[in-house]
Design a protein around this nucleic acid. Sequence first.
DNA 1: TGCTAATCGGAGCGATTCAATCCGATTTCT
DNA 2: AGAAATCGGATTGAATCGCTCCGATTAGCA
Lengths: 152, 152
Amino acid sequence: MRLSSLADYAVVLMSAAARHCGGMRCNARALAEETGLPLPTAQKLVSKLSAAGLIESVRGAGGGFRLSRPPAAITLADIVEAVDGPITITVCSGDHASDCAIEGSCHVRPHWQIVNRTIRAALAGVTLASLGQHIPDPKRPEHPINLKRTVS
Amino acid sequence: MRLSSLADYAVVLMSAAARHCGGMRCNARALAEETGLPLPTAQKLVSKLSAAGLIESVRGAGGGFRLSRPPAAITLADIVEAVDGPITITVCSGDHASDCAIEGSCHVRPHWQIVNRTIRAALAGVTLASLGQHIPDPKRPEHPINLKRTVS
DNA sequence: TGCTAATCGGAGCGATTCAATCCGATTTCT
DNA sequence: AGAAATCGGATTGAATCGCTCCGATTAGCA
């Protein structure tokens, strides 16, 4: 019950992109330094996000990328699905058919679908624009990323 | 964004336990045949569920186990947490402190906590008793488990 | 117009976690 | 007291994930 580290990093990276390069282009290196992510990881994330259509990249010297949509139109669900693929907590919770080999009527699957839709709605309810609004957290105002390489 | 296969199996196993051994004791072997799960897997699940206090096991010849609470008091969140541990979609989404090495104020963490609570509430809203109520699913009334060994 | 430099894009390797299986400890019935 | 059947933990193997490196592409400049 945990989404991948890449998806976690992607949310932080997109949040930084929405804050710093609003409209103007910025490159992966700048965002890597901004967020503290390793440069190769940031590059990999940019590739996936670009393939998903969330950002538009421009190659060559002086290139970079920019958000393809306004921050209010990009949700956590979009980012997570761009990196991890469709949000399906079980193999049968999605709307598509799954290769289920065991026979007999299933009492559980309809409930999984309901839970799955609820989870996706929770992720779709948070936009990049809302991430900009700072919710105070007195206990721990630190950054969420936990890179082992920085701990050592 | 997918919970482990063991947790998926555990839900099916507990659902079968609530249906078949309501009050009376049943053993892991019977539920394994009932659900189609491999016997070692069912045994492992029984161990974890017993350690979490969801079922009470009786050892020895003629032993078995029974639900320690009525089906209406056992939710999907209980089962998932018994198998996979606490429900935290990111390392910092839980209520406890996380070892975050990167400095700077975090704009994302408060939102993750909200999403995390929403997901947990969705899982806690489905009880074993509600699993008994059959929700019709005309498209695919099959069993959710997809065991590779049964496909071959 | 050719060259240089900087960037994105994809392929490969290592490490960690997870799933499945096996064997031993414990307990009840005969 | 012996034997059988069960739960409980430990081990092995595989798959996925995270990380890093290298090549392809393109704009800028002489």
